[in-house]
């Protein structure tokens, strides 16, 4: 697990039990608290910070950003 405290890594929620969940990234499974993200659902990605999910990643926004980046990339090829 990273030592950098500001860091929060994206992990996928595999199962939920009360205010705790099993979260997975790259084959590593961790028991995490979802006390700060009670809205988190199985299959969603959360940002994990010191054992707590601090936010649910918005997949639609992520796709939107990637689309924007692709546009920037193709635009800078022309210019």
């Amino acid at each position: 697990m990273p030592k950098v405290m500001c860091l929060a890594i994206p992990m996928r929620i595999a199962s939920i039990e009360g205010d705790e969940a099993e979260a997975e990234v790259g084959g590593v499974v961790r028991r995490v608290s979802i006390a700060l993200t009670p809205e988190a659902k199985v299959g969603e990605y959360v940002l994990l910070h010191t054992g707590y999910a601090i936010g649910v990643i918005d997949e639609a926004e992520a796709k939107e950003t990637l689309k924007l980046l692709e546009e920037i990339a193709s635009f800078s090829e022309i210019s």
Binding site: M5, A35, H49, G51, Y52, I54
Partner: peptide, 10 residues
């Protein structure tokens, strides 16, 4: 900072 504070509150 504010990232960690809510985990401590919880």
């Amino acid at each position: 900072f504010e990232t960690t504070a809510p985990t401590i509150a919880a």
